[in-house]
Amino acid sequence: MIELRPVDRVEGTAVPLRGNNVDTDRIIPARFLKALTFDGLGAHVFQDDRTSMPGHPFANAAYAGASILLVNENFGSGSSREHAPQALRRWGIQACVGQSFSEIFLGNATTIGLPCATAPASDIEALMAAVEDEPGTPMVLSVRARSITAAGRTIPLSLPAVVRDSLLTGQWDATGLLLSEFEDVRRVASRLPYVKGF
C-alpha cells in the first residue's frame, strides 16, 4: 500500500540563497550520484559551493535547521537528477519559495512532496532581507492558503492548482493514480501504430 501523506503547513525558519540559474550540479555535484540510495545526500548539499564560497548560506550556522529555502530565478536548472530535491529535503528543507524554478526540478520536487511556490521578485527580496536581518525569523508557509507569513506580513504565493491539490490530498506520489485505471492504459497502447505494428 502506498502511503498518502498530505502536505500543507510548513513552519520554521528560512535560508536565503541569492542568485539566478542555480543548477543541480551545484545543489548536488555528480560524484555524489554514485550511490544506490538517496540516503546521506543531505550532508553533501551545495558541497562545492559551501567549501569554495565563504559565507555560503548553507555553511552559515545562523541558518542551520531552516525548513524553507528562498531562491531567485530558474532554481534547479540543468540535470534532471532527483538527487537535488532529495538532498535538499534530507538537509531539512520542506518547502522552496522563489521567483521561478526549472521545469524538471519542479516536477521532481512535486513528485516527492516538496512544495515549490513562486512570488514576484519584490516579495522574494523582502523575505530574503527579513531573514538576512534576523536569521531566526519564524515563517509559516500554507499550501492550502497559498501564502507565506513572516515578520507579521502575509505574502501570497503562486502554486498551480494541480500541484496544490496533489499536495493537499497526498496524491503527489502519482504511482497509485496512474495504475488505478489500467485498462485505459492498455487501450491507449493498443491504438498506437508503433505498438500494434505498422
Binding site: 534532471s80 537528477r81 532527483e82 538527487h83 530535491p85 524538471i104 516536477g107 521532481n108 513528485t111 516527492i112 498551480p160 494541480v162 506520489d173 502519482a174 504511482t175 493514480l177 496512474l178 495504475l179 489500467f182 492504459v185 497502447a189
Partner: peptide, 21 residues
C-alpha cells in the same frame, strides 16, 4: 522526448505513464 527524475522513472516502470502538464 523529455527528461524525468527517479520517482518518475518508477512511475513509468510501474505504469508506462507519467502525470504531466
Amino acid at each position: 522526448a523529455f527528461g524525468i527524475g527517479t520517482s518518475q522513472v518508477r512511475d513509468v516502470l510501474a505504469s508506462q505513464c507519467l502525470a504531466i502538464d
